[in-house]
Amino acid sequence: MTLTVNIRKHLEHFDLQTSFTCPAGKLTAIIGPSGAGKTTLIRIIAGLETLDNGTITLNDTVWNDTQQDHFIPTCKRKIGLVFQEYTLFPHMTVRQNIAFGAPDSTKVDTLMNLFGIGHLSRHKPCTISGGERQRAAFCQALAREPELLLLDEPFSALDVKTRTFLCGLLSEYKSELDIPILHVTHDIKEADQLGDTVIAVENGRITPNWLSRQHNIPNILQTACPPTYS
């Protein structure tokens, strides 16, 4: 299963124009400064925003094709999406939140235990910590049994302990999930640690030399198995 993106959208200050593929079982990290168009890219892939031109396909399934006027609505794309801020439904319990989009509710408890929140199933989101909420958000996204996992800076508001735990889980299970994972971040270290491929985006375009302009790039290149940079 491979995600293929070739899109163009006019934004207020620049055109978001990008083309890349994201293979199954691999995590593609998208990094870049704030306002580079990373979140817009994720939202377009999720179908939450329209694009001016281009195509988005997941294997043989065309989600967007502006030439054919073809658009698959968000609810029909099997996506798992985790945002930076906690987005659990406040009127539901943690378990109800996770089971909300799950085609098979028997997997909900397994996921909750895996993420260490099995004991919180009857709690409302407002009664648990931020880290626990983000773990629940991951469970919610994975319980959907997605064909594509989109992560929009999911670790940036977390404490070090929760961030390490979730990064570890993601590293461990990304190949087991066997779906394309697109991870937006502005943390180069995080992109390096998790990404099999790293794409740098600046002003809406893939900018390979953006990485080399960052002062901490030498540290990244010291990793034992560096990802592919583009």
Partner: peptide, 13 residues
């Protein structure tokens, strides 16, 4: 509206 987006991502019309 943000919750509505999450709901749609989770497959609800």
């Amino acid at each position: 509206q943000r919750l509505a987006e999450i709901s749609q991502v989770l497959g609800k019309n």
